[in-house]
Design a protein around this nucleic acid. Structure first.
Lengths: 247, 247
DNA sequence: CAGCCGTGTCGAACACGTTCAACTTCTCTG
DNA sequence: CAGAGAAGTTGAACGTGTTCGACACGGCTG
């Protein structure tokens, strides 16, 4: 069980890059062979996560299933948690792809926002069970997996950009001062939806759908109202508070 | 290092109860000796958590420091995480004690709410560093430590009751329909404050204080507006949505 | 071609949370 | 007072995530 013959990989020649970024775990592989192994481990891990759940999947199990040694997995991913970072990235890409349709079709802000939020939940849906298990990791402030962390920055910025598209591509007329902050606020609202979704035990997470359908008109109305003269001071206060709180 | 003489505890006689609730970990100790050991382990654990942080504190370390065997700790607390449940309970009690002063003094809703929220942060303040570390555990939906879990029910209900006091003891006139739900909503807002506090890296968590001071007037204004005839439909919608979403 | 070195790979070893079967201590029953 | 049985206690052992020193591969320089 401990011995294995040489890997049967009939690998195709070798594109040889010599970047030498230095780091191991976390850095990109420098050779084609490395890239291949990395992908193999990652695919195996995400598959097992979905099949057995996060906690039930062991690093030894991943390594065995992928036909490599445990240490090899740690050469590419500095921890079990870091495998999730890749899950985030994949999810983000698929979210944008799913949202593209609605964004091309709709021009009303409410319809666009509703579509983008539903697209996000659609993307996550197949992973609900295992997402609930690992979610706690993302909640830890010091974790690199926190949506607010520096390491999550690329995924986060991409997600905020999606909500910026949602807004700017719409016919909504927004207080320009609010318009600068709104994409980030919408992203925060999306995080709230995901937070609710993770805890949502209703069949098919139907309640999360209800949350989206109920909250979107409220947000839409609120955004519209923000331009009213009477509410300007309130808008100002809220924006001021938000700017103070941003860290 | 492995041998220890008999514990020096000069224990005072024995009140002998015979409840026989059955369970071990989680159930209350049946004898005075048990109660004493349980307290000892708990005090040691919480002290070490604060001194070294949650992750850096090992069960072996707790046991050693308390002068008991590892297995003994598991006789009283079914997991390391369950030690946190006790931290919650202690925190809740202290929160109420700290809030009592403001609630006895103030009659305005905004002042009362502000006082209660600050009291909560005051209570948590000494544990900021270690709270951030273990916070992730509470975020996992399936965890008994989740503030929404059945096992957290006593602590949760007590906390909601505190916010009910905050409201009913005030001079605020609230839409009665909203009044029923508001305490729970305020508790949710408090969770939001704690969530922000956990991520708050500003010195002395000053930004969390700013959040409270900024958000309380907004909540106060919102609650007041809810009675306006024009906003009744909106209030209705929001309440309807909340009722749907409650799980 | 020899040697070097960066890249990739291995698996034993470590510390941890947790379990469990055996043991001790204590109290109440007969 | 004997002993049964509950309550409490023990520490070795298990499986886990993670580390680390050693080794293999392969292309480049001399």
């Amino acid at each position: 069980m401990t011995d294995r013959p040489a890997p049967p990989s009939a690998d195709a020649g070798g594109a040889t890059e010599q970047t030498g970024v230095g780091g191991a775990a976390g850095g990109e592989p420098a050779t084609a062979r490395g890239e291949q192994t990395r992908q193999l481990i990652l695919d195996t891990a995400l598959r097992l996560f979905r099949e057995r759940g996060y906690a039930q999947t062991t690093m030894r199990g991943i390594a065995k299933e992928a036909g490599v040694a445990v240490g090899n997995a740690y050469y590419y991913f500095s921890s079990k948690e870091h495998l999730i970072q890749e899950f985030y990235a994949e999810t983000g890409v698929e979210h944008r792809a799913r949202a593209a349709g609605v964004l091309a079709r709709e021009t009303e802000f409410a319809a666009r926002l509703r579509g983008v939020l539903h697209a996000g939940v659609d993307t996550l849906a197949p992973s609900h069970e295992f997402a609930a298990t690992f979610f706690k990791t993302a909640a830890e402030p010091t974790s690199p997996l926190s949506p607010f962390s520096a390491e999550s920055s690329p995924t986060r910025e991409a997600s905020i950009a999606l909500f910026r598209d949602t807004l700017t591509g719409s016919t909504a007329k927004v207080d320009p001062e609010l318009g600068d902050e709104l994409p980030e606020l919408l992203w925060l609202a999306y995080l709230g939806v995901v937070l609710y979704w993770v805890h949502d035990r209703s069949p098919g997470q139907a309640k999360t759908r209800a949350l989206i359908d109920g909250a979107v008109p409220l947000i839409d109305r609120l955004v519209g109202l923000s331009r009213l003269r009477v509410l300007r001071p309130v808008t100002r206060d809220v924006l001021g508070l938000i700017r103070t709180l941003r860290q």
